[in-house]
Amino acid sequence: MSGKIQLPIVNPNYEDGAPGAGQSGDAPKAAGKPRAEGGDVMSEIEWETKNHPVFLYMKGSPVMPQCGFSARVAQILQHLGVQFASCNVLEDMEKREAIKVHAQWPTIPQLYVNGEFVGGCDIITEMFQTGELQELLGVEG
């Protein structure tokens, strides 16, 4: 097991997945630093996964998920009271493809904890059921 993480650390530029915490619901926000012209999407993925203890790539937002698999992972994190940042990949087609290469993982959602790829919906659900996710995140429940 890797070490427990410090919570919360929330970058104000990112959507916060905690219920009721600064969600606009609409007004698509480019999660993360805007890519400078010619900017490197892989560096941006590296940056956002390393600079947020818990980062979720998903379809839609935690409040308005656009896919059942993404919704389930967001719900699990919210249920555990974990603060997390997220990125709606439906608003960024380049990143949607780049995250698949970055994690060597072909599907969405993708959850990173402490900069490490942890898994998609099935793995997160299994880890939640066994308590491994709670242990990794350092939370009860």
Binding site: K59, G60, P65, Q66, C67, G68, F69, S70, A71, R72, L90, M93, R96, C121, D122, T125, E126, Q129
Partner: peptide
């Protein structure tokens, strides 16, 4: 052990 989550209709809005 797992079951499918309810669909959220995303393919309707998926630009791709």
């Amino acid at each position: 052990q797992l079951d499918a989550p309810p669909c959220r209709g995303g393919m309707k809005n998926d630009p791709r």
